[in-house]
Design a binder for these strands. Structure first.
Lengths: 233, 233
DNA sequence: AAAGATAATATGTACGTACATAATATTTCT
DNA sequence: AGAAATATTATGTACGTACATATTATCTTT
């Protein structure tokens, strides 16, 4: 660290992270305040602020006005999971993407969907199931309910050509969403669609999205055996 | 929007997001440059910059110098997954945490662990298996390998009292890590430990962490049936 | 001593200016 | 025309100042 040359917020970020890693600053420790650090490292407070803000959002630091900045006592790892459109995920693996609509029906939703989206049992909804394939093999089975009130134009979409997954991303951006990851044993019907055996362990992703407080869609995405979702920290 | 009162970066963030949601700015569209937006919204460029930077990191915008800022053509949802220490995850659910060491052995690692961590087959490692319980019921089975070269002090840790999971978080902060999520059928042994039936679908989290380029630990975390990992977007 | 009001303080953020950097557009040269 | 050099431009970031805000510490009152 040379106090003459200009410091970038990234170099401050790295230097603070180094001190945490080398345990110069241990979990729970109060670290110097921004002005002091700025002086130490030869940069402006704004630069230190940017670096510390970033580190806090990464879970390494806890910051509170007046109380100061501490090394996180129980570092919570914040994994960033990229959830692209299925087509891009498959193409990103270098595989050929294909898609097939299984069925599409306009009807009222079952209780669990009402509960997820916070809508009434009489809601006008579209129920769609489809299969996404990678190199011709079943990759993911999608079982989705879409609120027609929230996105009426979905009735005009040609869901034989574009998947509901992709159509929604392009035409119904949302403000809020929930995802649940879990593991389930394949039912007989699911096993048949995904060309595997009943009871096989499958990776399940359940997504619900809202715009403000109106539910848009709730989907159950069931992945073929062997699927692994990766995340770097 | 009042051009007289001061704009916060959050209000700019929300306004831009609103324009994306209402499709005033569609996926792929070039949006006004920072100076123009600042003028429009009555704030400084730095404020607009902060808001747009945030939106880009959230996956809503693509930004490139000179080329300008565009609405992301294929919005990649970036889910933030908090991965706390198991004890805190269980206590956060309002359940009582307990932990039992199953066995701990110092030996050379099998091939797959060598591959994960990038170490040789002759490495000096600690192999630990343990069970984490919530309200007395099996919650997660942990099968972990720790490099003794990277963290020699783990030999002094009393792993009957503190889990390797927690000890490592407190004593061996890392710089880089990988996580894989998947679903597997329980083996006979795994089923017995988790008190369930063989073949039951289980949620699996595989974690490997490095400090710089030396592998620290590789763990296989197998959750009891019914486990769901949540994430808000 | 307990409660309430007040002061002190570290972080949070806005602004304007200045310059850096990367990518594109234009001009010049061959 | 094609390649190379140059200018242009939008974002990226650093700085110093100013003030806001949340929280803690201190003082005052009862």
């Amino acid at each position: 660290m040379n106090s003459l040359e200009q410091q970038s917020w990234q170099s401050v970020h790295d230097e603070v992270l180094r001190r945490i890693h080398t345990r110069e600053w241990k979990p729970g420790d109060l670290i110097p305040k921004e002005v002091e650090l700025a002086e130490q490292l030869g940069c402006a407070r704004a630069t230190v602020n940017r670096a510390l803000r970033e580190l806090a959002s990464e879970g390494f630091l806890d910051r509170r006005r007046k109380a100061g900045t501490r090394v996180a006592a129980h570092p919570v790892r914040r994994a960033k999971l990229d959830i692209p459109v299925i087509r891009l995920e498959i193409e990103g693996r270098g595989q050929k993407y294909a898609y097939g609509l299984l069925f599409s029906e306009r009807r009222t939703p079952p209780p669990e969907i009402c509960a997820n989206l916070g809508v009434t049992a009489e809601s006008d909804m579209l129920h769609i199931t489809s299969l996404h394939l990678a190199d011709g093999k079943p990759f993911m089975f999608e079982d989705r309910w879409v609120s027609i009130a929230a996105t009426p134009t979905i009735l005009d979409a040609d869901l034989e050509k574009i998947s509901a997954n992709e159509w929604l991303v392009l035409h119904a951006p949302y403000t809020r969403g929930d995802i649940y990851f879990s593991a389930v044993n394949a039912s007989a019907a699911e096993a048949k669609v995904l060309r595997t055996d009943p009871g096989t362990s499958l990776f399940l992703m359940e997504r619900t999205t809202w715009e403000n407080n109106t539910g848009i869609t709730s989907a159950r995405l069931l992945f073929a055996p062997g699927y692994r979702k990766h995340s770097a920290i």
